[in-house]
Write a protein that binds this DNA or RNA. Structure first.
Lengths: 250, 250
DNA sequence: TAGTGGTCTAGACCACGGT
DNA sequence: CCGTGGTCTAGACCACTAG
């Protein structure tokens, strides 16, 4: 049913096993990802691709246009197709630096490991009808960039939808990655409310800042591919050193 | 230097006064905006457009692809090009209540009417290379919900891309609506940074709050269908009564 | 089966950038 | 000047949708 082109998988069409422009697309993407072409380098010109792959310019252009749409290159008239800096996070809120400084610089600690409990008054979004009926799972984490404590994150969601969650280790420390890989649930959208507040004593203690420091309070409601699984989050961020970033592309 | 196609302005190329696909694009966009085609309707097929405009399918397809990229239609194999619901909050931040309470409850006042000036140090996003070369237009507004002053909005963008802007009245008081209807430019994406700050004296005065009240500072960079038109915005919000809302859908 | 959009060919002329 | 990407023509075959 699915076929592999390079390292990528495509749904197999009946008589056209491979789309030519996808072949070129996958080839170029791999070259970029493997570092043959670095940021600022120019890819082979359209005419060169025509010869290499025995295709017409229309097809070569289609591949390059797709590559541009995905953010890998910028086409420049009279010069060529230059490898661009890849777009990072898409829509979800992320601490600036989380994506760039992947790995050592960033880590997360549990303030409260997952447990079954009642819905909290702290949740800002109205809790949906179906959700009220059951109890929920809750966990709370503290996120660091380097030694700086930048965010308290609290999460609630209906307990019935994720069986075995209390016994599951987070995959690579990520809740969303766990949802995706263990439960095959994807986040489809979110709704958020933003408030600037002054840190109360408890928040100030955890974030190690002075009481009364301005903090960013983000209230999130995530919609997922399991329509019964709404995730409610409340984030409290110290934006002094690291602002919260958010990217959106049509 | 600039020419008008329909109600929209384009930079004039030397020998090709009008790009054919843009002619089609502008025509279809106007038809949609004027309500000839409503959400769910199907546009003329590619072949019909070929006949109407005396063009080949390649050119008709180019126009439709652009229209799809800007979010106006969805192309469906075997059926046609269906007018889609234009995604509204495009990652745009909106004061909660602005959309619900459209009309009487909400209004906007200019603190500074549009003028030509230099780029400001206040802009948080790095100003892109091409943008630095020219001067910019700037305007500043204060937004109310009822009698409450909830947001100061400052906007900058390259002056050369919007000819006649200083003499243009805002359509329905909206900058983005003006961009869309007068210049046929659509917002394709945004990148934002969020910070919680304490109001300084000037901000406090304008928003009529106490100095030192926590305010939400949103730094935005909008990407549009005119790749030379980047819009830089700095918003200062009093979220005490009205939090800032943001919706995202994949 | 007729009509739609998706892919592709083999050409052409143009504007732009750098030599 | 040559090579680059941008636009455009006039075809072709294909897969999908619906009557």
């Amino acid at each position: 049913m699915y076929i592999q082109v390079g390292r990528a998988w495509f749904y197999e069409r009946k008589s056209m096993v491979t789309l030519k422009y996808q072949e070129v697309l996958v080839y170029l993407k791999e070259q970029i990802q493997r570092g043959k072409y670095n940021i600022g380098d120019y890819l082979p010109s359209e005419n060169e691709l025509c010869v290499q792959f025995s295709i017409t310019r229309t097809t070569a252009r289609k591949a390059l246009e797709e590559l541009q749409k995905e953010g890998f290159i910028v086409k420049i008239r009279g010069k060529g197709s230059r490898v661009a800096e890849r777009r990072k996070s898409l829509g979800l809120l992320s601490v600036k630096g989380f994506s760039e400084a992947v790995g050592e610089n960033v880590h997360t600690e549990f303030l409260q490991r997952p447990l079954r409990t009642k819905w909290s008054e702290e949740i800002q979004h109205p809790i949906r009808e179906g959700d009220k009926d059951t109890e929920c799972f809750f966990f709370e984490r503290l996120r660091f960039v380097g030694d700086s404590r930048v965010m308290i994150g609290k999460n609630w969601f209906p307990a019935d939808e994720l069986p075995g969650f209390l016994d599951t280790e987070f995959i690579e420390g990520s809740f969303f990655k766990t949802l995706s890989k263990r439960y095959l649930i994807e986040v489809l959208g979110s709704s958020s409310e933003l408030r600037a507040e002054l840190a109360d004593e408890k928040e100030a203690n955890i974030l190690q800042i002075e009481k009364g420091t301005p903090i960013l309070h983000v209230s999130l409601l995530f919609r997922t591919s399991n329509e019964k699984l709404n995730i409610y989050s409340e984030l409290y961020c110290n934006t002094d050193e690291f602002p919260i970033g958010n990217h959106y592309n049509l």
